[in-house]
């Protein structure tokens, strides 16, 4: 009796999970199969598999989007921004946690309070700042902007993480004659590895998928990110679903591949960031 109940329960749960999975994947799968069709075929039947694989859709969008260049731009931007965020906030987060003064409490509050400011209210002033500093159209400059926007959250996380690391190791290092900077790089930073992974992942995703900021700061199409190139293509082929869908797949591809390779790390990183924060 119990056994039978369990089988029914099993079937029920699996059916539920299966349907949910189907639902989750449906936009991607539909975009994928239809991106290989001709426009006419697509209009006739959206649900069928393509009669033959029309790779020329991809060939065209690949060229139109300047895919490789856009990809490299985005990758460069994401890696540099993340590096800046990690370095800046690890330094700050560690010291903020280890120093117990009025100043440290003030600084921590200062960093954290802005996390709820809506982006729309800083957009135009921020753009003006990038002009004044002459970093418009510069991916390096944009990376520093991302650092400015991203440090709050990262400092918050580092600060929380350092709390749980025993002080003794650092103290031992400084007694051994390490300068604070040496202590940081040789002793502390390696210990921050789990939370650093989290911060890298969540920030890389944010920057990779961000649209509004690059749209305003980058006007030179040689420096376009993937989303900007995709967006330009939408404007050019707004009535051609095959072009749009193949562009969507191409734009989503890098993150999906990245996810396929590192999914365990990514999922763990997300959990650490959320539960410990």
């Amino acid at each position: 009796m119990v056994g039978k109940n369990k089988t029914i329960g099993n079937i029920f749960v699996y059916a539920f999970l299966f349907i949910a999975a189907l639902f989750t994947l449906s936009p991607l799968v539909l975009a994928l199969i239809n991106s290989f069709k001709t426009n006419r075929e697509l209009l006739v039947n959206v649900m069928s598999l393509p009669d033959e694989l029309h790779f020329e859709n991809y060939q065209r969008t690949f060229e139109k989007m300047n895919y490789l260049r856009s990809f490299l731009n985005t990758a460069f931007l994401a890696v540099l921004s993340v590096a800046l965020i990690v370095l800046f906030s690890a330094l700050a987060g560690w010291r903020l946690c280890r120093t117990k003064t009025k100043l440290s409490r003030f600084l921590l509050k200062l960093f954290i309070f802005s996390m709820l400011i809506p982006f729309s209210s800083i957009m135009i002033p921020l753009y003006k700042v990038t002009l004044q500093l002459k970093i418009k159209n510069s991916l390096v400059g944009l990376a520093f902007v991302y650092a400015g926007l991203g440090v709050s959250m990262a400092i918050f996380l580092y600060n929380g993480f350092v709390k749980n690391i025993p002080k003794e190791i650092e103290e031992a290092a400084s007694i051994d004659g390490c300068s604070p900077l040496q202590t940081f790089f040789l002793v502390v930073f390696p210990m921050l590895k789990p939370i650093t992974a989290t911060i890298c992942i969540s920030n890389a995703l944010w920057i990779w998928n961000d649209f509004l900021l690059p749209l305003i700061v980058i006007s030179d199409n040689k420096k376009y990110t993937l989303l900007l190139s995709t967006n330009t293509l939408f404007g050019q082929y707004s009535s051609d679903w095959t072009a749009i869908l193949s562009a969507l797949i191409l734009a989503a591809l890098p993150v999906i591949i990245f996810y396929a390779f590192f999914q365990k790390k990514i999922l763990k990183g997300i959990v650490d960031g959320s539960l410990k924060g």
Binding site: L87, A92, R95, L107, I122, P125, L126, A147, G148
Partner: peptide, 28 residues
């Protein structure tokens, strides 16, 4: 301690002030 703190926070603080606090303030 405070001096050390400021030195360690400086890089983060600078980009944070330039790209977030100042725009937010002038936005207001």
């Amino acid at each position: 301690k405070n001096l050390q703190l400021i030195i360690f926070c400086a890089p983060a603080l600078i980009v944070y002030i330039i790209f977030k606090l100042y725009p937010a303030g002038s936005g207001f």
